[in-house]
């Protein structure tokens, strides 16, 4: 009988720890998240997502100076205003040869801003939050990590766009041959 009670206690304990974790997540993050999401949603609605169409047309041009527009500015604006997955519709402004690289660049930027702009991808918040929780547990501020994740992310998507554009060009040439 005692063994049974012990087993039952252990079984319930399994979920009790989970419950404590859930409570700390809901109490710690959700209130901030709700207000932040409301603010950003309102901002996006008031500015109007269609404003970024112009940047899309701009990013379609050839020439080296348009690389940062295509693989930094456009992906950033697209994920910020249209969020995941509608951000990828901005690819429609680009010539076919740039579309895979733009997708690669945009999809790689749905996580790096999550520490500051969680509205971009609220369903995948824990890519950021899981690791950030460890920093918080140490009693450190997560804000520097959030900021550098966002900045390094921009550098990474820029490189990713260029590399994928090159690989696409090579594969396309091989296909035609």
């Amino acid at each position: 009988m005692d063994a049974l009670v012990l087993a039952a206690e252990w079984f319930i304990g399994l979920f009790k720890t989970g419950g404590d974790v859930f409570l700390s997540l809901v109490g710690g993050i959700v209130p901030l998240l709700i207000v932040l999401l409301t603010g950003v949603n309102a901002l996006v609605a008031l500015i109007g997502p269609d404003k970024i169409d112009k940047v899309g047309e701009w990013a379609a041009r050839d020439g080296i100076i348009y690389y940062p527009v295509r693989y930094i500015l456009l992906p950033f604006l697209a994920v910020f205003f249209l969020t995941n997955p509608m951000a990828y519709t901005m690819g429609r402004f680009l010539p076919e040869k740039y579309k895979p690289a733009f997708y690669d660049s945009a999809v790689s930027y749905v996580h790096p801003p999550l520490g500051i702009f969680p509205h971009i991808n609220p369903g995948e918040l824990f890519v950021w939050l899981g690791i950030a929780a460890g920093i918080e547990a140490l009693g450190l501020s997560v804000v520097p990590l959030a900021v550098w994740y966002l900045i390094v992310g921009l550098i990474v998507i820029f490189i990713r766009g260029i590399v994928t554009e090159r690989i696409t060009a090579i594969m396309w040439a091989r296909r035609e041959a």
């Binding site: 995948e124 939050l129 899981g130 460890g134 920093i135 140490l138």
Partner: peptide, 14 residues
């Protein structure tokens, strides 16, 4: 990614 991230954060980093 979310599970590995959470594991890293809540164990090794924490």
């Amino acid at each position: 990614a979310q599970i590995i991230g959470t594991l890293l954060g809540s164990t090794l980093i924490a």
